[in-house]
Simulated assay, not measured.
Amino acid sequence: MYSSPIAEGYLGNFCLCGGEDMKIHEYVGKNVLKENGFNVPKSVLINGPFERRDLEQLDLPHVLKAQVLVGGRMKAGGVVFSRSYEETYQKISYLLGRKIKGEKCTKVLVEEVFEHDREEYLSILIDRDIRDITVLYSEFGGIDIEDVEKQKIVKIKMEDISKLPDHVRDITYKLVNLFIEKDLTLLEINPIAFNNKDEYMMLDCVMHIDENALYRQNWCPQIPSFDPELQGDVGIIGCGAGIVMATFDAVIECGLKPGAFCDLGGGAKKENALKVLNDLSKRNKKIVANIFGGITDTMEIASAIIECKGKNPEIQIFARITGNNEMFSRKLLTENGIKVFDSTTDLINALRRESYVL
């Protein structure tokens, strides 16, 4: 979900939320956990019109959680509690459409409250220094985890998981297997709650997935939704969050306003790219396609660009393509009347000239 404050701040050499990671919403992550035998609260996802009977399958009290990809939701008012169905109904209406730390809430996860005695912290990450998976564990978890003294957060190598306390050891082994199977770069459970019988419940889940593995992880949504409130001049697509955000910044620096933008991720196919381009063309008449093909076949993107341009001749597409099959892609685009630029600088300069002329 969001970048974990403690996981991000505790060790600077962990691979967390860079250009190769995609953040996963809590409700998606919890579905994955549940399908793999972990205990998560019984819940209902609300993402549109709903009725009281939708909520009555859950026992009271409830916790309502705005599904936004930001940290510190509770302190920002994005996590609230309810002791009646009527109160739950009202608070869902309150959360839907509300901005939590700048991100609009379009989905609310309603869960049964799990009564518990203690909250602990468990996180699995990739440590670049040792080129292996590492576990962070603390018996002090919850919303104030970033305030816990670092010496109370234990860094554990894979071979030392057996030294964890009995009540979390088996859980950790299973989470590590899931981490590997799902191509995750971060899996944080904060808190993992325990009652006086040592029964546990995973109350929150933060997942990041390696974007380059999306093609083989069908459980993960591959096309991020657009922010409808971005009403700028230029639509942007790219393969990787880093290149997309760098292009976003370059568009701003040349004096234009970015509109809707999308990271296609690794291994993007023509169908996905075409859907994104068609959506962009409804919002923006200029589109920047800054494509680096590592795992992505650039011919897939080039074919989508050509088809989109054919259906929407009024739009201008500024393309830069490098990487896998770039010579064939550049030739194909050029033959179809679409100029391909050698560098991002050339692309942005052309965009600036066209924007000032038109």
Rank of each mutant, 00 (worst) to 15 (best):
F194Q: 08
L164E: 01
E139P: 04
Y173F: 12
K104A: 03
Y173S: 05
K157A: 04
E115K: 14
V108R: 07
K150C: 01
V135A: 03
S123A: 15
C105W: 06
L187A: 15
C105H: 06
M158F: 06
H116C: 15
M202F: 09
E115G: 10
P165E: 07
V176T: 06
E188G: 11
R118V: 09
L214I: 08
L95D: 02
Q151M: 07
R118L: 07
E149L: 14
R98A: 09
E159Y: 10
K163H: 00
K157W: 00
L125S: 11
V206K: 15
L187V: 08
G102C: 07
D210C: 08
L136E: 03
P165F: 04
S162Q: 03
Y200G: 14
L125C: 15
E115S: 14
D160G: 00
N190R: 07
D129I: 11
L178E: 11
F114D: 13
V206W: 00
V135G: 08
D147A: 11
L136A: 12
K99V: 00
L175F: 13
R128E: 07
E159K: 10
K163L: 03
R131V: 01
L178G: 12
I153T: 03
Y121V: 03
L122G: 13
E119H: 10
I124H: 08
K150E: 10
L178V: 05
R98F: 04
N190M: 07
E211I: 06
I124S: 10
E120Q: 15
K163C: 00
K157Q: 04
E149G: 13
L203S: 13
E211R: 02
S162W: 03
I100T: 10
G97E: 06
K155I: 14
M202H: 09
G141K: 06
N177P: 00
I130G: 02
I189S: 09
T185F: 04
I145M: 06
N195C: 13
N177V: 01
I189A: 12
G102H: 04
D117L: 11
E119L: 09
H167G: 10
I189L: 15
I100N: 11
E120L: 12
E211H: 08
L184M: 15
E103P: 01
E159F: 10
K182Q: 10
T106M: 02
E159D: 11
N177W: 01
D117M: 08
V110D: 02
M207C: 11
H116K: 14
I180Q: 14
I126D: 06
I143W: 00
L122E: 12
K104M: 04
V206P: 04
R131Y: 09
I100M: 05
K182I: 00
V206H: 05
A193E: 09
V113L: 14
V108H: 04
G97H: 04
R98T: 06
I133C: 10
L214M: 12
I189G: 09
V176W: 03
A213R: 00
M158G: 00
L125M: 14
R131G: 01
K152S: 07
D132C: 00
D160W: 00
N212Y: 02
